[in-house]
Amino acid sequence: MTAIVEVTDLTKRYGSLAAVDDASFVVREHAITGLLGRNGAGKTTLMQLITGQELATSGEIRLFGQHPLENAAVLSRTCFIKESQTYPDGFKGEHVLKVASWVFPHWDEQLARELVDEFRVPLDRRMKKLSRGQASAIGVVVGIASRAELTIFDEPYAGLDAVARQAFYDRLLADYAEHPRTIVMSTHLIDEVADLLEHVLVIDEGRLIIDAPAEELRGSATTIAGKHADVEAFSRGRDVLDADSLGAFASVTVAGLTPAERAAAAAAGLEVGPVSLQQLVIGRTRGTARQEVAS
């Protein structure tokens, strides 16, 4: 396995706030990695550190095996599309695409034109006059057509409607399948991308709390629902991520059940259901996890 990004004990402090708190992980070559977490969890800071835009307080970052900071050899192979991207005054979409075609060695102009048509972005209007969705679409076009060996999308879809977002995922997936590259996707629309991800990183309050293959996370948690007393009896001593009750009915989300345990729960008359990646992340990051079933 080749590590395109390798982060070791990385910390970034702003005053007393640790935006990134002692994170260590790798991003594998040619995988689509999801960087998930709530707003303000530290996702953007982490990606800015990786791309040498922010300076780390402590810890190590390797991009293609090298320090990213001021390193043209590795930064030129990287494309970082972020929601908050600013553009020079008076820049129009056509100018953004022109500059991108100069800067990215693997730029595909024809693909860019196709994507512009698909997203219906006006290229002859100033970036400032575009709607949020149109500006986001320009970023998405650049991100896909750059074919950069490491492409990072940081919530690239602000203002894009569901149709356009689906088009983004479909085009990205299709182009990735034909031209494999390393993709990091930071998002809080987890359900939409869950099936695209090969690996999942979850960050919460600056700390990396999940670092696992997506397949491993699927089915790693289970909802158990049924009579209050039964649910309580079953969940006692287990890793409860989330709990809820309505009168005599209770529901818990439990991590790490074996198939046999699930079968036992079902045999005991409890409802056993799957937990989506999104629900799992919500359970892990909402700060009220591990509460007892209210009694």
């Binding site: 396995m1 080749t2 590590a3 395109i4 390798e6 790798v26 070559e29 390797r62 293609f64 095996g65 090298q66 390193n71 043209a72 050899a73 590795v74 030129s76 192979r77 020079p88 008076g90 820049f91 129009k92 100018h95 022109k98 500059v99 100069w102 800067v103 060695p105």
Partner: peptide, 28 residues
Amino acid sequence: TVVALPTAPPAPPIGRRLWNAVRLHVAN
């Protein structure tokens, strides 16, 4: 386990990088 580290190809030539920075300003 990290088995392999990618071998980075050299950066684009300095001339092109600087030229890109210059023409970025005259794209518009």
